[in-house]
Design a binder for these strands. Structure first.
Lengths: 142, 142
DNA sequence: CAACAGTTTAGAATTATTATAATGTAGATT
DNA sequence: AATCTACATTATAATAATTCTAAACTGTTG
């Protein structure tokens, strides 16, 4: 499987040991057309489906965080009881559907660059995230 | 105490029964110069300090959510293990200090209006939130 | 292939939050 | 002012997400 070799290389490049679990997670996360959004729970379900042997919940957490630290994944700021991650690590923003709890990517044409005129001494800006919360137009909003 | 009467009236206006606990929470939350940001835990600590009798954790949760539903408080979208609330319910954005986990208000001059060019059919925009994550400039970032 | 450091694992522990069921109380009604 | 009723509060239990732990395992290096 040439794809896997690719992932093994990529993992090595950022200094992560290409273990079975990590390579499998790469397959599940990156062998797809579009980038996608998920919670740990989503990912565990996907992995159990697509894998012969089982993977520990703790491993999924560890690996997701390892990927995040190395820039393979981005955590998305939504105030929810769960954490959301995104395989699209480029600078972009999100719509959050409050009815379905789905995340929708914005590409760079959807939202104009955000112009920040304030700066805090001694601090550098790590990220600028825009979250547009939407809900059904007819029914009553929260 | 004329302040409390004020709060009692305000609570009545939005259809919340002005119980001892709710009035006390109003005092703690709104008898201050600046708007402020807190987690449930922060608030519980503040309340236990400033109150003679104790208040149940469940009551703090219930009351915060009651206040949120009635527009007395706004929840802020940060991906954290805790929920953050803001006594400033007007449209504004935030800086989040990843070192200290502190929230800092932006006023309308700090960030230009965000121009959203995408719209999702059948959905209306409920809110647009910008979160600027900052961290110390010298030490290594996450 | 031996050794070591980093990983995985199951399960326990922790933390935030919500549910439950009994008791208390604000506000209306007598 | 006594009573009633619906809503609030409370302590505690339950749930859910996440992290910790300590033992077993596995890439990688030499």
């Amino acid at each position: 499987m040439p794809k896997n070799c690719n992932f093994i290389e990529k993992l090595r490049e950022v200094g992560l040991r290409p273990t079975k679990q990590r390579v499998k997670m790469c397959e599940v996360l990156y062998n797809r057309e579009k980038t996608f959004h998920f919670t740990i729970n989503d990912l565990v379900k996907l992995l159990s489906e697509k894998m012969n042997q089982k993977i520990s919940l703790a491993t999924v957490y560890n690996t997701v965080h390892a990927f995040e630290k190395k820039g393979y994944l981005k955590e998305i700021s939504i105030n929810s009881d769960k954490s959301y991650f995104d395989t699209n690590t480029s600078l972009h923003h999100h719509f959050y559907d409050e009815d379905t709890h789905e995340l929708i990517d914005c590409d760079e044409n959807d939202i104009d660059p955000v112009n920040i005129k304030k700066n805090i001494t001694g601090k550098k800006i790590n990220s600028v995230e825009v979250l547009v919360k939407v809900a059904s137009d007819n029914q009553n909003q929260k």
